[in-house]
């Protein structure tokens, strides 16, 4: 008896507390910028695809929901021929972002991905690729890597000496 009265009293007191429930979806909640939501592929500051198809995200993924195929353009720049994430399997752990050596794959603070058909949760590269650099505005992998690509020859990357002239006899 006493317990019931105490319960009723507690509930009565809650009427005067501040409300935490918000009227989603009419009212949007605050999502921190480092939230691990919908995955995107970003572009480097020059507008090129950042993904170099190294397969590290795919191997880091604990549910194996990322798959891709590497290919190259005529100047030797690597990019994914296809890039597929099966969001119906994704657990948004962020390991792919952590593994990515080029800041290409990033998790965003969008979580509104509900679908009636599971098949629609399979995202291809066209669905994933955004037009900007995302959270990391500066980094451009190919400016640092030693590989020559279109528009960047050997020795033109950061901290690189010009290519060695093998015919030079000076010590």
């Amino acid at each position: 008896m006493w317990s019931s009265i105490r319960t009723a009293w507690t509930i009565f007191l809650h009427m005067f507390r501040r409300r935490v429930t918000i009227q989603y979806p009419e009212e949007k909640p605050y999502i921190p910028p480092r939230w691990r939501g919908r995955i995107i592929l970003s572009r480097d500051p020059d507008g090129g695809e950042r993904c170099v198809a190294c397969y590290l995200c795919a191997v880091a993924c604990p549910v194996d929901c990322i798959s891709l195929q590497a290919t190259e353009d005529e100047h030797g720049r690597r990019y994914p021929e296809f890039f597929r994430i099966n969001f119906s399997r994704c657990i948004f752990c962020g390991y792919c972002e952590e593994a990515c050596p080029t800041y290409a794959i990033q998790l965003t603070n969008d979580f509104e991905m509900g679908e009636y058909d599971r098949q629609n949760l399979v995202y291809e590269k066209e669905d994933l690729l955004i037009d900007g650099p995302g959270k990391y505005p500066e980094y451009n992998f190919y400016r640092v890597a030693g590989l020559a690509i279109g528009g960047k020859d050997k020795g033109e990357a950061e901290n690189e000496a010009p290519p060695v002239d093998l015919k030079r006899l000076l010590p």
């Binding site: 397969y55 795919a58 191997v59 993924c61 549910v63 194996d64 929901c65 990322i66 798959s67 891709l68 597929r84 994430i85 099966n86 119906s88 399997r89 599971r118 098949q119 949760l121 399979v122 291809e124």
Partner: peptide, 12 residues
């Protein structure tokens, strides 16, 4: 890798 995504475009 890619066990759950490789053929997801065909069938999820």
């Amino acid at each position: 890798s890619g066990r759950t995504a490789l053929y997801a475009n065909v069938n999820v």
